[in-house]
Design a protein around this nucleic acid. Structure first.
Lengths: 145, 145
DNA sequence: TACAAATATTTAGTATGACAAATATATTTA
DNA sequence: TAAATATATTTGTCATACTAAATATTTGTA
């Protein structure tokens, strides 16, 4: 394989990830969702599994703990989530959605799914499979941890 | 196509783009490059085409103008680039690398190429072609501009 | 049990990304 | 030519990412 050929994939990857986020964010804003795409990602995980510690929530959202702390702070201010101290381990906090938070996720989910689908116009199921397989391979190639 | 199936591509895309950046950044840091991955992207473009206005540089780097202004500020502080007022249009600035900047790009380029290659272990040239084609299609699907 | 090490969370600092507004200069138009 | 409009850049604000360090609590060990 020639080096030059692979020199720019990181640029295309970065630009496309940015575009996907921008597109979703501008749709959110236009429709008056009043949350960011990252806040949505956290809400969605919390909706699917209540009673998560912040550490576990961060892991599932693919965010580091300081970033998650700040996103959760914002969700609290917006009245969408709550922090509860874990009495069995007072270092930990459990998070759950408020009723308002649950309603928000339930009502926005189908609209978000539609927004997300737009990326796949003109592409096939085979493309989708290849795409996720390649992304996962790249991720694992670099995930030395 | 079923919605649920496509629900999580944006997550994988985002995580992989992040991982690619993290891997490069930690390699840069480990090797003592003393620049960020985004600063590198700007230096590389400037090296390939000197005498760019900031607006054009921003376009080629895929960054917005405020972000580019700030990255260029840092490159100036590090003595890697210079701003020159365009006397034919005093709103514009031309940018070019200092000798130190040119030397830096020339010496780091092959090492960066190697770092970038690691992502492609276990993948084929066909994968690479599919990957870039799919990314470009997604980008264009969302690029309403 | 007391002390050291580990863990969960938060705080702080720097870089980047997005968007709006401010500034300076050019261009267009009445 | 003066005023309106357009353009290039910068500044400001908020959100996110990463790192390191601080804090509180728990666990392991002598």
């Amino acid at each position: 394989m020639l080096n030059e050929k692979f020199d720019r994939y990181s640029f295309i990857l970065d630009q496309t990830a940015k575009k996907v986020k921008q597109f979703a964010q501008s749709s959110f804003t236009e429709k008056g969702f009043d949350i960011t795409v990252d806040q949505w990602a956290v809400l969605k995980v919390l909706y699917e599994t209540e009673q998560l510690s912040q550490k576990e929530l961060a892991r599932r959202c693919g965010k580091d703990q300081p970033t998650l702390t700040r996103i959760v702070d914002i969700l609290l201010k917006k009245g969408l989530a709550e922090r509860v101290i874990d009495e069995t381990d007072r270092r930990s906090l459990y998070l759950h959605l408020t009723e308002e938070g649950k309603l928000k996720v339930a009502s926005l989910s189908p609209i978000v799914a539609e927004i997300r689908m737009k990326a796949w116009e003109k592409l096939t199921e085979k493309d989708f499979e290849d795409f996720t397989r390649i992304l996962n391979t790249i991720y694992n190639n670099l995930n030395i941890s």
